[in-house]
Every structure is written in structure tokens, then in C-alpha cells.
């Protein structure tokens, strides 16, 4: 079975601004990662672990599907 190339995109930056312009530092402290990890996540250079993803969902009070989307490749 050929593996299709897929990637995960997220709406973390958008949700951060829609939640009272939360800073990257505040989000990082809330989910227990560094500020630079939040920056990398927003720039699509880092895909968080399931644990951090669930924590992000809890911080923004939205289900995971609204934060992360799987983009199927060719």
C-alpha cells in the first residue's frame, strides 16, 4: 500500500486572536511548552503531541477537529 503524503494544518494563531488576543507566551504556559514551540506550531514547523493538542482544545474550549485539519496529499 503506497503511503500518501499528508500534512496537518492548524488554526492556533486564529483561535489565539479570537480568545482575547492571548499571547504566545500565555498559550505556551497554559499547555506546558516553550513560547518558541507555539511559534513553530503556528508556522506549521511543528505538529504537537496528542496530549498538547488536547490541552490546546481545552484552553480554547473547542473540539480538536476545529483546531487541526488533515490535508491529504497526492
Amino acid at each position: 500500500m503506497a503511503r500518501s503524503k499528508s500534512r496537518v494544518e492548524n488554526r492556533v494563531r486564529e483561535l489565539r486572536f479570537s480568545h482575547g488576543a492571548m499571547t504566545q507566551e500565555q498559550l505556551a504556559n497554559a499547555i506546558g511548552v516553550s513560547r518558541q514551540t507555539v511559534i513553530a506550531m503556528e508556522q506549521g514547523r511543528f505538529c504537537p503531541s496528542l496530549e498538547s493538542a488536547l490541552k490546546i482544545g481545552r484552553v480554547f474550549n473547542v473540539p480538536l477537529e476545529e483546531i487541526f485539519q488533515l490535508i491529504e496529499g497526492q
Binding site: V33, S34, Q36, T37, A40, F46, P48, S49
Partner: peptide, 13 residues
């Protein structure tokens, strides 16, 4: 303050 932080999941990865 960030100097005291331990490695997070990105650092470990």
C-alpha cells in the same frame, strides 16, 4: 526567565 525552562516535546523530538 526562559533559561530555567526544561526541554519540551519539540526539544526532545
Amino acid at each position: 526567565d526562559e533559561l530555567n525552562d526544561g526541554p519540551d516535546e519539540r526539544d526532545l523530538g
